[in-house]
Design a protein around this nucleic acid. Structure first.
Ligand SMILES: [Mn+2]
Ligand SMILES: [Mn+2]
Ligand SMILES: [Zn+2]
Ligand SMILES: [Zn+2]
Lengths: 145, 145
DNA sequence: TGCTAAATGCAACTAAGTTGCAAAAAGTTT
DNA sequence: AAACTTTTTGCAACTTAGTTGCATTTAGCA
């Protein structure tokens, strides 16, 4: 019998019209269990049995993005951080916090920010991204290095 | 006699306690005349006579950032975009718009966004960055590729 | 069971940014 | 002005996230 998780993954892949393959299920599983956006490297590190090729992970993430299943949340240290798109509205992903000192990332899911207004006529906004940088509670007392 | 521009540059470097060198003056001049954040490559392309080594440009920008003269405004296509920090408050650079189709960048200097509130106790926010993606007026009618 | 389009793995590549080190230039002292 | 000290510069080599081409494998389907 299949676990709830694998059923959910199957459904997601089916409804996105993507073939069900080992790498896709594994990567999706990691993203489903993550509470924050992950890089390709972090995804690979969280994979247990099957560790697909780096290229496959990137191509899988690209497919997921195309299907609207995943977002590129933000880029940090020259690396994209990917997360499931389910907690984002169409025009705005929730804000993300990154600690300058320890690098910890927090999704600020509750705190939506109103879209910037007053842009000159003719501009069409597809997406607004808000990022916060600072110190997390555990780093707050220390000097950021 | 010195031009107004070179006097201004001299003052900026002096007050930032940075030695006055050819590369620094040239790079600062490009940034002073730019109306939007530029990458290292774009800065190099805008330099006229002296074209310093790529490494020098990066190190100069790092010095300027350390001195608070310049900001890393945002990263796009894996490249940092630098701009003078004079139009930014301490906690927030103005929002930036990037056209998905043609790549044109616009500084939204007037349109500040209120800092996200409601973050859990203990977090210290140093900086909020807002980015908009969409279509500029000239690309608005066309399909984004 | 076989067919075909889609997905994967591998190796080689791209490009922004960094590092170590020796040479050059800026600011300072004599 | 010459000598000295410290910072800056240039060069070559390196790092690393992400991409590309191509041969091989596999999912979905007849
Ligand atoms: Mn998130
Ligand atoms: Mn700007
Ligand atoms: Zn921290
Ligand atoms: Zn455009």
């Amino acid at each position: 019998m299949k676990s709830e998780m694998s059923l959910r993954i199957e459904n997601l892949l089916n409804s996105a019209n993507l073939r069900r393959t080992g790498p896709r299920a594994a990567i999706l599983s990691v993203l489903l269990q993550a509470d924050k956006p992950l890089t390709q490297g972090q995804i690979a590190a969280n994979l247990a049995a099957v560790i697909p090729n780096k290229v496959t992970i990137y191509r899988t993430l690209a497919s997921f993005c195309r299907a609207g299943l995943v977002h590129k949340a933000f880029m940090h240290k020259r690396a994209w951080h990917f997360e499931l798109a389910d907690k984002c509205t169409e025009s705005q992903c929730h804000p993300h916090f990154t600690c300058k000192s320890c690098g910890v990332v927090r999704c600020l899911v509750g705190l939506s920010v109103s879209i910037v207004e007053g842009l000159k006529k003719g501009f069409v906004i597809h997406r607004q991204q808000v990022r916060l940088e600072g110190l997390c509670p555990s780093c707050g007392g220390k000097k950021s290095m």
